[in-house]
Amino acid sequence: MLVHPNIDPVAVQLGPLAIHWYGLMYLFGFAAAWYLGKKRCAQPWSPIKEEQLEDLIFYGALGVILGGRMGYVLFYNFEQFLSDPLWLLRVWEGGMAFHGGLLGVVVAIALYARRINVSVFALWDFIAPLAPIGLGLGRLGNFIGQELWGRQTDSMFGMIFPNDPSQLPRHPSQLYQFALEGVLLFLIIFFYTRRQRPALAPGALFLFCYGCFRFIVEFVREPDSHIGFDALGWMTRGQLLSLPMILLGAGIFVYAYRRAAAQGK
């Protein structure tokens, strides 16, 4: 049986200001996206120039933070928002959702694409390989903060989390998500985009792979206590939100290749 290392979630304490590891993971993720984006700008099919990258990252960061917060409020805790609307603004109390962050990025990227007059689909394909590193780091932040742990298990991977009132051995699902949504997803998208692919295909592959990985991990991740299971007695909110990603990603991927074939590319 494993025991969580009980890492202090506060990385740096500066008087009354506490900088948490989870927040730093966001910062590291944006920095990694900027570094990798610089390399991607050198590709002849890149839709943007290197001097446009910082603005793209800024727009994307706003989309992640604002969309992630609003997504958590709307998808996971709408009743609390109705009873206390100002809770939406109290981000220091925690609560971010990937699916909301994804929608926020889609909107932000569309706005930036319009500003610089490039195809929004080309820009989405460009950022697809930049996102997984940040996703993986975010899951490490969840692990350090002992958030979003897994369901009870008697397997060799069972871990005791000190903050868990029940003190049951649980799947360290945050690490599973780090491995799948961070490392594996990055490798798939990174190597796939090393050469030019049909328009829409990289973004579609990202949607499909993330949706599949998230759907799988949800089987061992503890459902939100105030929600439980949403459908069929076993399907979680995360799985319901991931299903459209899987279907949409697969459909767009097939369409991208068929369109490219029809155009003789």
Rank of each mutant, 00 (worst) to 15 (best):
R114K: 15
I144Q: 03
G15C: 00
V106R: 09
P165Q: 03
Q146H: 04
S173F: 11
D84H: 15
E51L: 09
G145L: 03
L74I: 12
F81E: 08
R69K: 01
M96L: 15
N163V: 03
D8N: 15
T153W: 14
Y59I: 01
P44C: 05
R139H: 01
P44R: 13
I48A: 01
G37F: 07
P223V: 02
S166F: 09
L243P: 02
A122D: 14
G60F: 06
S166D: 12
L103A: 15
F186Y: 10
G37M: 02
V105T: 12
L247T: 10
D224G: 02
L102Y: 07
P162S: 10
N6M: 10
P129E: 03
P244K: 09
G94N: 05
G101S: 02
E147D: 05
I7N: 12
M235F: 12
A122I: 04
F191I: 01
G136N: 11
P172N: 03
G136R: 07
K38M: 06
H171G: 03
I127L: 03
C212H: 00
W92H: 15
F206M: 15
L56V: 13
M1G: 06
L130A: 08
G136P: 09
I133F: 07
P9T: 00
L66S: 10
G104A: 04
V73L: 00
G136L: 14
I188A: 13
Q146V: 09
F81G: 07
F81Y: 14
F126L: 12
T193P: 14
L86V: 13
Q177G: 07
I216T: 07
L168C: 02
P129M: 11
P223N: 02
T153S: 05
V64S: 13
L123C: 11
G29S: 02
G136M: 04
G104P: 11
G249Q: 07
V10R: 09
L207G: 03
H4C: 08
M235C: 05
G145N: 15
T236V: 04
